[in-house]
């Protein structure tokens, strides 16, 4: 597994734990009524599980297993930038929601999540191709 996939997948595992922890706190509130502050974390629960966990895990595995160009994985910089943008976006959304900052801040952090997805799509697009051509095989050997 390439190093960047390790970063994507391990970050996804961290987001899984953060998201499930928040979800558990909200369920405790529903069951007991003793953690009313947990409702403020509900938006982050969605960001961290849908984008930080599921989307990021898919990105990490795709970066690892999509067809390559010989030994290269294409525009690695785009994938690296996607990792930064997605994680900054999800963490930023958490801070904004916790601090109850103006909604324009949430638009920025969610924009960062969206930018990360676009950057990853730009990286992955040319790798979604048939098996290596004879020419590519020759050039890579």
């Amino acid at each position: 597994m390439p190093k960047l996939s390790v970063w994507f997948v391990r970050s996804a595992l961290v987001h899984l734990m953060v998201g499930f922890t928040i979800g558990a706190l909200v369920l405790v509130q529903k069951g007991t009524g003793k953690l009313p502050w947990s409702w403020a974390l509900l938006g982050w629960h969605v960001d961290t599980l849908l984008v930080g966990w599921m989307t990021q895990l898919a990105m990490g595995i795709a970066y690892w297993i999509l067809p390559r160009f010989g030994t290269r994985r294409g525009k690695v910089g785009f994938a690296l930038a996607a990792w930064v943008a997605v994680n900054a976006g999800v963490l930023g959304s958490g801070v904004v929601l916790l601090a109850q900052a103006p909604t324009s801040w949430l638009a920025l952090t969610r924009g960062s999540e969206g930018l990360g997805v676009v950057l990853f799509a730009l990286h992955a697009w040319p790798r979604v191709k048939p098996a290596m051509t004879a020419e590519e095989r020759t050039s890579s050997s």
Partner: peptide, 17 residues
């Protein structure tokens, strides 16, 4: 909230976590 159903809901949270 706070009834036996609430306690079971807390248990479900702990199990999923």
């Amino acid at each position: 909230p706070g009834s036996v159903w609430g306690v079971l809901l807390v248990l479900s949270a702990v199990l999923q976590w």
